[in-house]
Design a protein around this nucleic acid. Structure first.
Length: 510
RNA sequence: GCGGUCGUAGUUUAGUGGUAAAACUCCACUCUUCCAAAGUGGUCUCGAGGGUUCGAUUCCCUCCGACCGCACCA
């Protein structure tokens, strides 16, 4: 019998994963026959199963198996005022400045400048990018300017302003940090929300947006859920669904795309409750969940966002990071958002969002902890973590490579492959088909009778099927009606009965 | 969005201003008693559009897409 040796990571793991995803029907570029569309992807027959399994695992663990979380599904297009209240209309558009010569692009609010004032007269301008020593850099540049031009007089301290505060006249004079000459364009807004129009008329009054996150659905429907859902604090509202962001640069396959699926939950707590405790609770819960679908602890880490970088309302944000082939990147963000979102909607809509708490006899707007994760990112993480190329040595001592996706049985697109040992022996195929039909009622299973048995095993390895069941002559000729159960990772074989097979699936697939 | 590199079959890659290939994969049949066996047959290709040319997959332009870098990433 063959045995797998230690797995080796291919030189270019990302390339191997993308190639496998295409070859085996997990992920295709969108609209490929027209040349593709940057930032959009389609999920193929196996991909849609994998994605659905991840989503279902999340939903089962997050909603159905918890007493304190309920699910909803809200519309992708919402009232435009939702996005004004949430800050997305204003905050989602970053004013950007281009240097016409160097072709560098800067965020206007991170590009600082100051007039050079000597004896009360403006002699020129200096600029610098935002960092810890921006003011010092501007001052030094101003002094250098004065020395070079040999201007006599007293140099006033620089007054740093960001580029959004520059007048048109000043824009024409402020030097680009790249060239030192005034080559900058005026700030231009890039809004990342996709716009559309509702109704037949296409005018300003009909503008609507595709949601850039699903979270606002939970906030906007908060009162409806509270009034009808028999929920009490602390409790969560969850949903999964598509979101859309017009990313400037989609990158890294499905990691950052323009249409993606989120799985978000808003966990509402009493205003006096210990937010830090709940924040920690959800970080641990999410980490545990990721491990339960097969992501190795060695690839997971945490990153706490710096307090200074957080939005003013945020009490803390921790990201669960994953080691992708292209670097350690954010997988799951767990944010403590205070009661900012409900408060904003209360202000903007005029509808009170406070609830009455029977225990404390207080009326208040609840605070919230938000674990938000991208389904497509988890999908990619499971592919990257599960992909392995192994040297396999057979009985004759020949060594060859096998490609295997080591998916957890929970998320594997196919749970069991049913293989009659030989195609041309009806006793084998009949028994196999009977078992196949029986398993099919509860599990995603696959029947394959074509080609040599070894080839069929390897095909299943490559799509991550945890078990293969082979109907052989022992099944037919010996008592007990047992099959060969071949395990994907160890390639070990043992004999099991139908009852044992169902028991194994019942335990491993949940 | 800018710059660089690149785009030939499902995958990995040859090749050419004059009818486009290999390996593996995939499909069918034969055979096959446990790890990508063998045989026979078969499907599928020059990213798109325009230009130059008698003729363009090849040269030129534009677009689209991929990768890397810069910038961006609520």
């Amino acid at each position: 019998m063959s045995t797998p040796a230690a797995a080796t990571e291919p030189a270019n793991l990302m390339e191997a994963v993308v190639s496998l995803a295409k070859r085996r029907g997990f992920v295709f570029p969108s609209s490929e026959i027209y040349g593709g569309l940057n930032g959009f992807f389609d999920y193929g027959p196996l991909g849609v199963e994998l994605k659905k399994n991840i989503r279902d695992c999340w939903w089962n663990d997050m909603v159905r198996r918890r007493d304190d979380v309920v699910g909803i599904e809200t519309s992708i297009i919402m009232h435009p005022k939702v996005w004004e209240a949430s800050g997305h209309v204003a905050g989602f558009s970053d004013p950007l400045v281009d240097c016409k010569v160097s072709k560098n692009r800067y965020r206007a609010d991170q590009l600082f400048w100051s007039p050079i004032v000597i004896d009360g007269t403006i002699h020129g301008y200096v600029s610098a990018l935002e960092n810890e020593k921006t003011t010092e850099e501007l001052q030094a540049a101003a002094e250098l300017f004065k020395r070079k031009k040999a201007i006599v007089g007293t140099l006033a301290p620089v007054q740093p302003k960001d580029f959004t505060e520059a007048t048109a006249d000043e824009v024409a004079k402020i030097p680009s940090p790249a060239t030192g000459n005034p080559d900058l364009t005026p700030p231009r807004a890039f809004n990342m929300m996709f716009q559309t129009n509702v109704g037949a008329m296409t005018d300003a009054s009909s503008v609507a947006y595709l949601r850039p996150e699903t979270a606002q659905g939970m906030f906007v429907d908060f009162k409806n859920v509270v009034d009808t859902g028999r929920v009490k604090l602390p409790f969560g509202i969850a949903q999964t669904g598509k979101s859309f962001r017009n990313e400037i640069t989609p990158r890294n396959f499905i990691f950052r795309s323009r249409e993606f699926e989120q799985m978000e939950m808003e966990f509402f707590i009493h205003e006096d409750d210990d937010w830090a405790k709940w924040h920690r609770y959800w970080i641990d819960w999410c980490t545990g969940w990721l491990k339960s679908i097969g992501l190795p602890a060695s690839h997971l880490s945490e990153y706490d966002h710096l307090k200074e970088k957080l939005a003013f309302y945020s009490k803390g944000t921790t990201d669960i990071m994953f080691k992708f082939p292209f670097g350690v990147q954010e997988l799951w963000g767990i944010a403590a958002r205070g009661n900012y979102d409900l408060g904003q909607h209360e202000k903007a809509s005029g509808v009170p969002q406070a609830i009455f708490d029977e225990t404390s006899k207080k009326k208040f707007v609840p605070h919230v902890i938000e674990p938000a994760v991208g389904l497509d990112r988890i999908f990619l993480a499971t592919l990257c973590a599960g992909y392995a190329e192994e040297a396999v040595t057979d009985e004759k001592g020949n060594t060859e490579m096998r490609t295997v996706l080591r998916f957890s049985p929970r998320i594997a697109p196919v749970k069991v492959a049913i293989l009659p040992l030989l195609k041309n022996k009806e006793v084998l195929t009949d028994r196999a088909k009977t078992l196949y039909k029986k398993l099919q009622r509860r599990y995603a299973v696959f029947y394959d009778e074509g080609g040599a048995i070894g080839r069929r095993y390897r095909r299943q390895d490559e799509i991550g099927t945890p078990w293969c069941v082979t109907i052989d002559f022992d099944t037919i000729e010996k008592p007990g009606d047992t099959f060969t159960l071949r395990e994907r990772d160890s390639m070990a074989q043992r004999r099991v009965t139908e009852a044992e097979l169902f028991a194994l699936l019942e335990e491993q697939v949940y």
